[in-house]
């Protein structure tokens, strides 16, 4: 039972992590919490629904379309909303308010287009379980976990080992100096929105496979946001650890205490952590000496 819950928890945490890393990346560059980020998961999930039911594409292709859908809308939000607000020199609060507005627009729009009905992918998803020791583990959980692991490892590699990742970290650290040194700040920000949006798309498709697709599913973004705060806003590894912690905690609370207390515990963990370590688990700042 314990092992089974642990795997489920990590698999849920993985979905949170895919979104939480997006919050962290964008926060690290622009110092604002992109409240519309959860909706990119919802948009990705619906894109996959449309591709698999209307276009009748095979599932792998529909899933890829979902990822692309999340990425595209995320990019468009940056290009036509956030970038303009930044150019006007408005305070970051305006970005956050715009993001909240966008989030609402996306939710209402999907409600109008797709109605509030719960939808599922027209494919036989693996419902079987595998027996490991005395525990039964859902194949879907394992698949979701593997996909998440591969995607997150690719992300960490990209951030730490490529010139793109280096440039992004340089902008996050000191945007002015990065610009003077010839880093294309706006184009890198746009790429990060594409990246974050595609991660959200992956999360949306996986979430939709597990819990169906519905207009308010983007609210899972709130959990991911909590996870990224727990991990330390702006830190990608922090977001992953925070997400895993949150996923496992929620699953255990649901299993051993009560599923109606799940969110109570999530927020309690956030509040306690903010009291004890306001910068989050990985939010250690190296002090500037200059």
């Amino acid at each position: 039972m314990f092992f089974q819950q642990l795997i489920t928890g990590i698999s849920v945490g993985g979905i949170y992590a895919l979104l939480a890393t997006g919050y962290s990346l964008i926060y690290s560059l622009l110092d604002f919490s992109n409240w519309s980020h959860g909706e990119f998961a919802m948009i990705g999930a619906y894109t996959a629904i449309v591709f698999s039911t209307v276009v009748k594409a095979p599932f792998a292709l529909a899933a890829l379309a979902g990822v692309a859908g999340g990425a595209l809308v995320s990019f468009l939000c940056e290009r036509f909303a956030y970038r303009r607000i930044r150019r006007n020199g408005a305070p970051n609060m305006f970005l956050m308010i715009a993001a909240m507005g966008l989030s609402n627009v996306f939710q209402q729009a999907s409600n109008l287009i797709f109605t509030g009905q719960y939808r599922s992918y027209p494919f036989q998803l693996p419902v079987s379980t595998v027996k490991v020791g005395s525990a039964y583990i859902g194949v879907l959980d394992v698949v979701s976990l593997l996909i998440t692991a591969v995607v997150l490892m690719a992300l960490i590699y990209m951030i730490n080992k490529t010139q793109f990742g280096l440039n992004v970290r340089a902008i996050a650290n000191n945007a002015g100096a990065a610009k003077v040194l010839g880093i294309k700040v706006d184009s890198n920000i746009a790429k990060v929105f594409l990246l974050a949006g595609s991660l959200a798309g992956v999360a949306g498709v996986l979430y939709g496979m597990k819990y169906n697709v519905f207009p308010t599913m983007g609210n899972v973004g709130l959990k991911a946001f909590i996870a990224s705060v727990i991990g330390g806003l702006g830190s990608v590894p922090g977001a992953i650890v925070g997400a895993m912690l949150l996923g496992v905690l929620e699953t255990f609370v649901s299993a051993y205490i009560s599923s109606s207390l799940r969110d109570f515990f999530s927020f309690a963990l956030l509040i306690v952590l903010l009291l004890v370590k306001p910068s989050g688990l990985f939010g250690v700042d190296v002090q500037d000496k200059a």
Partner: peptide, 24 residues
């Protein structure tokens, strides 16, 4: 290329990474 006033190095990147940003 400019060496800006007040150094403006990347405090949260390693020395080696700072140099690689320069060569970007």
């Amino acid at each position: 290329v400019q060496v800006p006033e007040g150094r403006q190095i990347f405090a949260k990147l390693t020395v080696e990474e700072n140099l690689r940003v320069g060569a970007g």
